[in-house]
């Protein structure tokens, strides 16, 4: 069956889920897929749970939003609750390992899931600001349809001006991407359906 991936990402305003969605879909677009990305948006400029809806397909995507995701990413307490509506029995729930209790409370024990210690890795070995790039790496690893090169080029398009100002930032982002990728590729399962 052709690739037809649905990913919902939910997080707090500053966690960068929209950037992850943007970079992922940019990378997919340049790799020849037909992505569709739509952020949720409301009257509040700040303060709500930010949700990004991503679909990546080989044929043009139908509706911009979907009922159930193949992968749902939850990155905060509130996001764990908010993302519930997009999680079905087959959905892989990706969450930050620090939210394990919340996930157990909301989803029970049976939910197919992947705990990623992204916050811990970011704080200890890297930098809190690349937390979302670790998540990006996880998604690339888990789905397995993108080349690392595609993602790096997309990162470059998104942050190139910042990398130019501060080359160490580039190295930091690439390492974060690598760490996430390694974590995700261990659980390469969605991509197996390709």
């Amino acid at each position: 069956m052709a690739l037809n991936l649905k990913i919902a990402l939910a997080g707090e305003g500053g966690q960068g889920v929209q950037s992850v969605a943007e970079i992922l879909t940019e990378a997919a677009y340049h790799a020849g897929y037909q992505p569709l990305y739509i952020p949720n948006f409301g009257v509040e400029q700040r303060g709500g749970v930010s949700v990004a809806f991503v679909q990546i397909s080989e044929a043009p995507v139908s509706a911009p939003k979907f009922t159930t995701g193949d992968i749902v990413v939850a990155l905060s307490h509130r996001a764990v609750e908010r993302a519930r509506q997009y999680v079905g029995p087959e959905t892989l729930l990706v969450f930050d390992a620090s939210l394990a209790d919340d996930v157990r409370r909301v989803y029970g024990e049976g939910q197919k899931s992947l705990a990623v210690p992204a916050l811990a890795i970011a704080k200890e070995g890297l930098h809190p600001r690349v937390f979302n790039v670790i998540i990006l790496g996880v998604l690339v690893g888990v789905t397995g349809f993108l080349e690392r090169r595609d993602v790096e080029q997309a990162l470059e398009r998104q942050f190139g001006h910042k990398f130019a100002q501060d080359p160490s930032l580039k190295e930091l982002n690439y390492r974060a991407l690598e760490r996430g990728y390694l974590l995700g590729s261990e659980r390469l399962e969605v991509g197996n359906r390709i």
Binding site: E22, T25, Y29, Q34, P35, L36, Y37, I38, P39, F41, P60, V61, P64, K65
Partner: peptide, 10 residues
């Protein structure tokens, strides 16, 4: 509509 305004696609 707002979806078309805000969504990205090729």
């Amino acid at each position: 509509d707002g979806y078309q305004s805000k969504m990205r696609e090729p």
